[in-house]
Simulated assay, not measured.
Amino acid sequence: MGTWGSGNFDGDTAADHLSDLTGRLISEIAEAMSGDPVGIEPDEYWGVAVPCNLELLGLIAAQGYVGASLPAPETIADWKSSYLAVWDRTIDDLEPAAEYKEQRRAVLVRTFDQLSELAKR
């Protein structure tokens, strides 16, 4: 209990804060992923915010701080499958350049995969 170091995240209160913060990010993703798939289309708010939240979770988790939580790898795999299905089904409606489409999809896949790897640790 208390403090175990001099860093900003080396104490119980900081761990509680990180738990709350990562919990909110996970809850937002879960809600977006369980809602109407239109909400996660590439040009919709959650279509942009979900990958942002995933990357933020990964950045936090990579630090190894106590209190940072991640969803189970199976949950991340389900999210990836659902998200990319919507992406693949709708991205051409926006008429993106082929290079952008390819590069963006690769970034999305990498974002999910990196978080999944962190969750397996």
Rank of each mutant, 00 (worst) to 15 (best):
N8M: 12
I91E: 01
I60W: 12
V66G: 08
W87A: 04
D78R: 14
A49C: 06
G2L: 08
S82Y: 04
L115F: 03
A72G: 09
Y100V: 11
L18G: 05
A14F: 04
G67C: 10
C52N: 10
G39W: 02
G7W: 04
Y83S: 06
A98L: 11
F112T: 00
Y100R: 11
V66S: 13
H17L: 11
A77M: 08
W79E: 04
D88C: 05
L25V: 05
W79S: 04
N8V: 08
G23T: 05
D36T: 02
I29E: 00
A98S: 14
D93E: 13
A32F: 01
Q103L: 14
R89E: 15
V86A: 06
P42I: 05
D12K: 14
Y100L: 13
A119K: 03
L25W: 08
A30H: 10
Y83W: 08
G39N: 09
S6C: 06
D92M: 08
E55D: 14
D92N: 14
L56Q: 13
I29A: 01
Y83R: 07
V38G: 06
A97L: 10
L54A: 04
S27L: 11
V86L: 08
G2W: 05
R24V: 12
S116K: 13
D93P: 03
G35Q: 06
N53Y: 14
D16T: 13
Q103M: 12
T22G: 01
D12H: 10
P51S: 00
L18Q: 07
G2Y: 06
D20F: 11
E31H: 12
K101H: 06
L21R: 12
I76R: 01
L70N: 02
E28S: 15
G11M: 03
F112H: 00
A68F: 05
S81V: 07
R105T: 03
P73Y: 04
I29P: 01
L115K: 00
E117A: 15
Q63E: 15
D36Q: 05
E95F: 09
A15G: 05
A49H: 10
M1K: 11
G11A: 09
A77F: 07
G35Y: 06
D113V: 04
G35W: 05
R105P: 00
G39K: 02
E41N: 03
S19G: 13
V86D: 04
F9Q: 09
Y45D: 10
T111V: 02
A85H: 12
L25Y: 13
D43N: 15
Q114V: 08
A98M: 09
G64R: 05
V38N: 11
E44S: 10
G23L: 06
D43I: 07
V38L: 10
I26M: 11
V86M: 07
I26A: 07
Y45L: 13
D16M: 11
T111H: 00
L18N: 12
G58N: 01
L70R: 01
R24E: 14
P71N: 06
G7S: 12
E95I: 08
